[in-house]
């Protein structure tokens, strides 16, 4: 069984991420973002999910020890919402309040169609959103994978590492390919 932990940044849906992983037979646990990296290593984890956060935390919050994880991890990391925004800032991108924030149902378009995380996902699909801020400048080591009408960076990936950032929420029931995306992420962690 693969071991993937969920780092809790205080999001409303942290528990949903845990549940989706648990339902897919992953050994998983929600841990606070103050956990030190060494303790995660001791747990022999193979992947990490950085949860969404309390309001505006992605904009300028430090998100506990998330920086340390991004600096040291040699396993895949999936940043969601505030986790994604923090990932972008950490690698030199920019996060700003959205001109048009998105809440609820949004149509997402894949720009890059050979991405492992989105394998089997249709070019256009329904995702659910809940954000006031967004990544406005992509970090230079990243590629853009998906966009929506009002948010150009819905998904991004590090060019060399298995680090992914998603602005939308794959963990909620109403995101069409949510579970599918998690399955793909689990596969990346198993490899």
């Amino acid at each position: 069984m693969v071991r993937i932990f969920v780092i809790d940044n205080g999001g409303q849906w942290t528990h949903r991420e845990w549940r989706t992983l648990r339902d897919l037979e992953v050994q998983t646990k929600i841990v606070p973002n103050t956990t030190i990296f060494e303790d995660l290593q001791k747990e022999k984890i193979q992947g990490l999910v950085l949860s969404g956060g309390a309001p505006r935390i992605g904009l300028d919050g430090s998100l506990g020890n998330c920086a340390e994880y991004l600096e040291k991890a040699d396993f895949p990391i999936l940043g969601i919402c505030a986790g994604h925004q923090f990932m972008a800032r950490f690698f030199g991108g920019e996060v700003k309040p959205s001109k048009i924030p998105e809440f609820g149902q949004v149509e997402m378009t894949l720009i890059k169609d050979d991405d492992a995380l989105f394998e089997g996902v249709l070019k256009k699909s329904i995702v659910w959103e809940s954000h006031n801020d967004e990544v406005t400048v992509l970090p230079k080591d990243f590629v853009r994978i998906a966009e929506s009408e009002n948010c150009k960076i819905q998904a991004m990936q590090h060019k060399k590492k298995q680090f992914y950032g998603l602005q939308f929420h794959p963990e909620v029931e109403h995101t069409e390919y949510g579970e599918h995306i998690f399955k793909n992420f689990i596969q990346l962690c198993e490899e």
Binding site: D8, Q12, N33, A54
Partner: peptide, 16 residues
């Protein structure tokens, strides 16, 4: 159940 305490906030979480 889970959504009760998740939405009630505490710690980092905002109270909905």
């Amino acid at each position: 159940i889970a959504p009760d305490w998740i939405e009630s906030g505490g710690g980092l979480r905002d109270t909905i």
